[in-house]
């Protein structure tokens, strides 16, 4: 089966939870630099990755997304000193909820995306798209 350039309809649908001040500018920068990634990636922005409810992750996957990527604030977070640890706990909880429902926990992924992390973001999207295609 030819796998070259599948149309958007066949590519895994990814929901990205991003943050207004840190990862969003990094994702914006990818666009400003005309770097491309799959159009089936959609972004919802929130103030801080430590404030994402694990139920939202579950909800998105049940609604039809194939994967949820949390573009975490990492060490740059100005509002929560332990933001990375909190975000990691949210991901763990979401993965736990998925396992309970017989879903693959690899559908949730987290990585810190900084305000100039355009290349890392695009490469994460490429890798996650590939990984989800194999699930």
């Amino acid at each position: 089966m030819a796998k070259a350039a599948p149309s958007a309809g066949n590519r895994p649908k990814i929901l990205v939870f991003s943050t207004n001040t840190i990862s969003d500018p990094g994702i914006d920068l990818a666009g400003s630099q005309h770097m491309s990634y799959s159009p089936s990636v959609k972004v919802i922005s929130v103030p801080c990755s430590g404030g994402i409810h694990p139920n939202w992750v579950l909800y998105a996957l049940e609604a039809g997304f194939d994967g949820v990527f949390i573009a975490a604030d990492g060490g740059d977070c100005a509002c929560l000193p332990d933001c990375t640890a909190r975000t990691a706990r949210i991901v763990e909880r979401a993965q736990g909820l998925l396992k309970e429902r017989g879903s693959d926990p690899r559908r949730v992924k987290m990585a810190a995306i900084c305000s100039v992390c355009s290349e890392p973001f695009v490469s994460h999207m490429r890798q996650f798209t590939e990984a989800l295609s194999k699930l």
């Binding site: 149309s7 958007a8 994702i27 914006d28 920068l29 990818a30 666009g31 400003s32 005309h34 770097m35 491309s36 990634y37 159009p39 089936s40 959609k42 972004v43």
Partner: peptide, 23 residues
């Protein structure tokens, strides 16, 4: 944001970019 996170990132996929913009 349909510029940085849509039109500029999907310049070679007009149909898909349009569909994403609608969503």
């Amino acid at each position: 944001n349909v510029r940085e996170q849509c039109s500029w990132a999907h310049r070679h996929e007009r149909e898909e970019a349009t569909e994403k913009a609608i969503r």
